[in-house]
């Protein structure tokens, strides 16, 4: 059986600047990607049909993939935006984006066309553009309120500026880096990924609070406290990463998109959290503990 122990890192070898530079650089790159996306596409992230409006049809077709795709294209009068296949099942996910201005085909019409073509329809869902817009406002609003609420609570709990802002910056970065990765890897913002981003707020704060608590509230040497917090915190995050990797793989095989999307984003976010907590947050705390307090 594999065994893992959390290695003890000799933090004294690195300066605060060195420690903070890497996570900050990654954050800047992430923000640049998101800003670039906004300039190029008019939206900071790729949005799925839940937000832009459109129709998603899942059909089950036996046979080779190219043939199945041909069959799908000929069945529908509208041109599909994308056709994806679900591994382990002969199910294809076909999406139709609703173009503003153009006459798009509704769910009932698509269902009829699929039935006429003899396709086995597994599911159909249509979201109209204006409803998608409302969902977008709701999701972004929810995310913003959640982040603000978390920040206020963190400041109320620690009541000192530097450790609190360290937690808030880490959490911000934990959300932004996965968002940028989603853009790069072509993952669309869906209800599932929004759920995952919300979960990340909780996970991110977990390990940050643990670290702050050990360093600020316990007696003992800084590096010793850090190591103890790390041993617990890294175990926590790694356990979650393992669970999410496994969940992503199974859910992808089974074609449960919602769970797969949640899993993927959480894996990105948790990995980011490891870096942010033990480099960015830690360097800020060390600066605060050794230099900031005396000022």
């Amino acid at each position: 059986m594999v065994e893992f122990t959390v290695p003890e890192i000799d933090y004294t070898r690195y300066t605060n600047r060195q420690l903070a530079a890497i996570p900050l650089a990654v954050l800047v790159v992430a923000l640049l990607i998101i800003a670039g996306w906004y300039v190029m596409t008019g939206s900071p992230v790729n949005q799925g049909i839940a937000f832009t409006g459109g129709t998603e049809v899942q059909v089950a077709i036996d046979g080779p993939q190219s043939e199945a795709e041909q069959q799908i294209r000929s069945a529908f009068s509208a041109e599909p935006e994308s056709i994806r296949s679900v591994p382990a099942q002969s199910v294809y996910v076909v999406t139709f984006q609703s173009e503003p201005g153009s006459e798009s085909v509704g769910a009932t019409e698509l269902e009829r066309q699929a039935d006429d073509a003899g396709l086995d329809v597994r599911s159909i869902s249509t979201v109209s553009a204006s409803f998608g817009g409302d969902t977008q406002t709701l999701a972004l609003g929810g995310l913003a309120v959640a982040f603000l609420g978390m920040s206020v609570l963190v400041f109320a709990m620690f009541r000192v500026f530097v450790p609190s802002i360290a937690v808030v910056i880490s959490a911000f970065s934990d959300i932004m880096i996965p968002l940028a990765l989603m853009n790069v890897l072509g993952i669309e913002l869906s209800l599932g990924t929004v759920a995952a981003l919300l979960m990340l707020i909780g996970y991110s704060v977990d390990s940050d609070i643990l670290l702050n608590n050990h360093i600020l509230r316990r007696s003992g040497d800084f590096y010793e406290s850090t190591y103890r917090a790390m041993r617990t915190g890294v175990t926590m995050t790694l356990t979650s990463i393992v669970a999410m990797v496994v969940m992503t793989i199974t859910a992808t095989l089974f074609g449960i998109q919602l769970l797969a999307a949640i899993g993927t984003v959480l894996v990105f976010g948790l990995a980011t959290d490891l870096m942010n907590t033990y480099m960015l947050n830690l360097s800020l705390l060390r600066w605060y503990k050794f230099e900031g307090v005396n000022r």
Partner: peptide, 29 residues
């Protein structure tokens, strides 16, 4: 289309698949 409505249909087979598969996914996790 621009009314703000949504329609979704899940076939009973798909629903049953999701039920079993999400349980399996949970157990594996």
């Amino acid at each position: 289309q621009d009314s703000g409505g949504t329609t979704s249909y899940i076939s009973p087979t798909q629903g049953a698949d999701f039920r079993v598969n999400s349980l399996l996914t949970g157990i594996i996790a």
